[in-house]
């Protein structure tokens, strides 16, 4: 018993050191968000706020339309996530259960899209979206991202793990593929959908370069672009900046807390066995 404690001591020390490294920037953000302007600009820097100055939050909301940015990001991420789930499930079902000519070639084609970094396509995509008049619109922000090869592989993996007997039985009962897809495959793959959903939502919530290119009006800015406005606007009151950051962080943190166990293991499944 005693020996076990001894061997675990280094593990604890290591975890605590690691946790400090990870948490420190969060703590600075959090504590600054609750400070007065004078406190946040003081030298030496303060690690604790003297009180809870919650008016920072209303202060930053008055300067920058963060609510609007958050709404935009929410709409964009949700649309993309929903679209991704639909296109991924459909394609995954075809690759998992349907027989069709050229299946291997199409599968290789889908696989090859994973090797094209998005940045390579960004200039032509910008020109395309501009020529369609989609700059500064939800369409321009979402449509290019509605399908991902990663999602297809992840969902295919889940479909292949479904019990074969069940699908066989459905076929015997005269179920067509469309019904099997809608009534069996998709509902039984909720864990997979959740993994892909959380991953896709977080990923697109955090998108930076594309929204920077295709939005120009304040009305259409997403949170990530809006947040950098905090620091470029005249006020460099760090307490307000940090209060803004905290507001932006909150949705993703909640999402992570709810979906963490889905992400662990789920991502590995799609990444390796696909």
């Amino acid at each position: 018993m005693k020996r076990q404690h001894l061997t675990r001591l280094p593990a604890y020390l290591l975890s605590i050191a690691a946790a400090v490294f990870i948490l420190f920037p969060f703590w600075i953000t959090f504590s600054n968000a609750l400070m007065t302007e004078a406190e946040s600009a003081a030298y030496p820097p303060k690690l604790w706020p003297t009180g809870l100055h919650l008016d920072n939050f209303s202060g930053v909301l008055a300067v920058i339309p963060i609510a609007r940015f958050i709404t935009n990001s929410f709409v964009v991420s949700s649309l993309i996530t929903l679209g991704c789930l639909v296109t991924s499930c459909m394609a995954a079902y075809a690759f998992a259960f349907l027989r069709f000519p050229g299946k291997k070639i199409f599968f290789a084609l889908f696989l090859s899209t994973m090797m094209i970094p998005w940045e390579v396509a960004i200039i032509p995509n910008y020109l395309t979206v501009r020529s369609w008049g989609w700059l500064d619109s939800y369409a321009g922000l979402t449509v290019p991202f509605l399908a991902t090869a990663f999602g297809v592989f992840l969902m295919r993996q889940f479909f292949l793990q479904l019990p074969k007997e069940l699908l066989e039985a459905a076929r015997i009962d005269g179920c067509g593929h469309v019904r099997i897809f809608l009534r069996l495959a998709v509902p039984l793959s909720i864990p997979g959908l959740a993994t892909l959903g959380v991953y896709s939502f977080l990923n697109h919530w955090n998108m930076y370069l594309w929204p920077l290119l295709v939005t120009s009006s304040e009305q259409m800015r997403t949170v990530q672009i809006g947040v950098s406005m905090l620091q470029f606007s005249e006020m460099t009151a760090w307490n307000l900046v940090m209060a803004g950051l905290l507001l932006v962080l909150l949705p993703s943190l909640i999402m992570l807390a709810l979906g963490l166990s889905r992400l662990v293991g789920g991502l590995t499944a799609g990444a390796l066995k696909g």
């Binding site: 990870i22 920037p25 600054n32 003081a42 947040v227 950098s228 760090w238 992570l256």
Partner: peptide
């Protein structure tokens, strides 16, 4: 596990500004 996973919730722009404060020459 939750602590180590936390940075996944931080976007590149949020993270950059968080660190900008840490890197700040005076404060």
């Amino acid at each position: 596990r939750f602590i180590f996973a936390l940075p996944i919730a931080v976007s590149v722009s949020t993270g950059s500004i968080m660190w900008m404060v840490l890197f700040h020459p005076t404060v």
